[in-house]
Computed example of a mutant assay.
Amino acid sequence: MSGRLRAAALADLPGLRARHPQGFRAAPLGGLPGSAALLAGLALLGFGFWRLEVSPARLIGGFGHLLHFLTLMLPPDPGSWARAGLILHGLAETVAIAFLGTLVAAVIALPLGLLAARNTTLHGVVHFLSRRALDGMRGVDALIWALIWISVVGLGPFAGVLAITCSDIGTLGKLYSEAIEAADRRAVEGVTSAGGGGLHRVRFGVLPQVLPIMAGQVLYQFESNTRSSTIIGIVGAGGIGLYLSEMIRTLEWPTVSSIVLLILATVVAIDALSTRLRAAIIHGAAAPGS
């Protein structure tokens, strides 16, 4: 049957073109502006490769050096038991920095996220200032925050916690505000119709919807900050990054590979744990309405 319909449609193709010309109109290719934008993008890409000295030959040649470093790293060997203990202590310190910095940032970012959201802010000026403050804190990388806080409080994990906190306040505050603005307004309208004020609308209309989303965002940030804490440790903000940089400077490549493997195993474990916790939170949030 489909073959007969197709044959009939092909036989009546001139009539179909006459009755439905818009259906047979060729799709526009963007015209001159689109072509000019494409050419400009390609020219900018080529200029960037040239200006930054991106060379495929250098990249291919560098693979030989990379393989040489990999052979130097095998087999992984932390060295003495004393060094292995120091490495494990540094790894635990890195996880502690990430956990404490993320937790403090999550608490501080909550009121800022409420002020930065259009549907829960106090005033338009407060909304604008809150947004710009979050943009400023998020625009400075955690490594830069670490260098700043090292100059203020000195070397050690305390500077690392402050660096993670400052960086995450901007990120989590931004994510919180977007989740709050996307909340269903019907719950807020229900609280208002029952005589609830502004705080009641936030407490009973907005927060129950967005808290599971916020919890998932905090767990993801904790996982990401475990890697960031390794980097800021290299500049002296505590954690295993200090041991990693020392081993690289002294060319202790088997110890470097053992540290890298420990970091990867920790990140994988935290990722698996956070995935289960996020699934449990989402399931728990969906259970009352099911």
Rank of each mutant, 00 (worst) to 15 (best):
V95L: 07
T226W: 05
T171F: 15
F63D: 01
Q221L: 06
P208G: 13
H127L: 11
S80P: 01
A215F: 14
A215R: 03
M1K: 12
A43G: 07
E223W: 02
L70N: 01
H127A: 04
F24G: 15
F204P: 04
G160A: 01
W149L: 10
E246K: 09
F47D: 11
A105S: 13
D12Y: 14
R118K: 15
V191H: 03
A285C: 05
L110K: 00
A286G: 08
D77I: 02
F128D: 15
A116M: 07
Q221G: 13
G90S: 12
G3P: 13
R132N: 09
W81K: 00
G173P: 15
E93W: 02
N225K: 10
M73C: 02
L219G: 11
A40R: 11
A183I: 05
H283P: 02
L86Q: 13
L52G: 03
P21A: 09
L39H: 11
L67T: 09
A279G: 12
R58V: 03
L162R: 15
L39D: 04
V140D: 01
G241I: 12
S2I: 06
T171N: 12
L32P: 07
S193G: 12
G170V: 11
I270Y: 09
L147W: 01
G239P: 05
R25G: 00
P157Q: 08
G197C: 01
K174P: 10
L262G: 12
V218W: 13
T266R: 03
S80C: 00
A272Y: 10
V267W: 01
T230V: 11
R17K: 15
D77A: 05
